[in-house]
Simulated assay, not measured.
Amino acid sequence: MRTSGTTRLLRNAATAAASVALLAGSLALAAPARAATDTTGTTTGTTTGTAARPGEPAGFHPEQDHAGSTVARHEGRSSAAANTFTALAATQTPGLDVSSYQGNVAWSTAYANGARFAYVKATEGTTYTNPYFAQQYNGSYNVGMIRGAYHFALPNVSSGATQAAYFVSHGGGWSRDGRTLPPALDIEYNPYGATCYGLSQSSMVNWIRDFSNTVHTKTGRYPTIYTTTDWWTTCTGNNGSFGATNPLWIARYSSSVGTLPNGWSYQTIWQYADAGTFPGDQNRFNGAFDRIQALANG
């Protein structure tokens, strides 16, 4: 049967429309996920695309997560904090902490400027290891510093024991050589969502104890705990059961250390500023250099 010109035009138009729709669908499937940001510009997750891998929160950005990365946003900083280094007493020993954010660190320069100890981020969750860890961990040791490794905790993605085992297997070990600090747990505001990672206070305490006991079993040392008084109070109910076993590494960007979490009568390390003389964060050890050696030796 012969078709009219009008019929052929209608059929051609329908075919073209179908092709355009098919192409648009293909492009939509191929489009990468778009990162969502909060009002500070920090990546908070993805609005489309595949779900995060097991052990990773949505929008995983471990290169941005380090000891203190959430502190200033939640607690602010004092203008006096950056100048605290110049007023160090003889019984306070300066040091620093770094992560992949600092890349390759000029350790000889940091040592010449007075740093005598360093904590280096090793791991986060159970999927991330710091690609600069060897340069930072070994480099600080090679110039004469006492150094240790720390783990950035994600309590909502796996158990404390699981993360502790991953940490110890990827740089978080310890040896009694007088140059290695106890492994450290960085437990602070959640950079991916709810402040306390969706855990109740009792569940958070159990997670920290699980991590701590596993590190102790595997290394012979209880980990140093890095936190802030505000976070600890909010998320553990100001639990006082860790002070007898775990050294405290407190973060407060001010001219004084302030009130400490329950259970600790003094801090071992104070992270007093997130910028200053050294690369990364600025710290003071609460004692002379021989006391850092004593802590390293256990």
Rank of each mutant, 00 (worst) to 15 (best):
K121W: 13
A72F: 10
R252Y: 00
Q135T: 14
A118E: 04
D281C: 10
T91R: 10
F242N: 00
T43P: 05
K121R: 15
S202F: 09
G59S: 03
N283E: 05
S255P: 00
G240R: 01
F85D: 01
P32E: 15
P54A: 12
Y119F: 13
P183S: 04
V257A: 00
A273V: 09
V105N: 05
R116V: 12
N156E: 10
G144S: 11
A106G: 11
Y119I: 07
Y132V: 14
A90H: 13
K218N: 09
W207Q: 05
T224M: 02
G276E: 11
S19A: 10
S26A: 09
G55D: 10
R221G: 03
C235V: 06
E124D: 13
H216C: 08
G287C: 08
S254Q: 03
A28I: 03
G114D: 15
H66I: 14
A115N: 08
Y192N: 14
T228P: 06
V168R: 07
G178I: 07
Y101H: 07
N238Y: 00
N286R: 13
A14E: 12
A51G: 10
P279K: 02
V120R: 13
T123W: 04
F85W: 03
I269D: 03
D177H: 02
S202Y: 13
P223H: 11
E56A: 02
S202T: 08
A106L: 10
G220H: 02
N138M: 15
N297W: 06
D210W: 05
R179C: 13
V143I: 11
S200I: 06
Q282F: 01
M204N: 07
T229S: 00
G178L: 14
S108E: 15
N238L: 01
A33I: 13
V215G: 10
R221D: 08
W270H: 02
A30H: 06
P182S: 14
A296K: 15
L27E: 06
T227M: 02
F211M: 04
A184H: 02
A72P: 06
P182G: 05
D230W: 06
G103W: 04
A87S: 12
L185T: 12
W207G: 01
I225K: 02
P57S: 11
T224G: 08
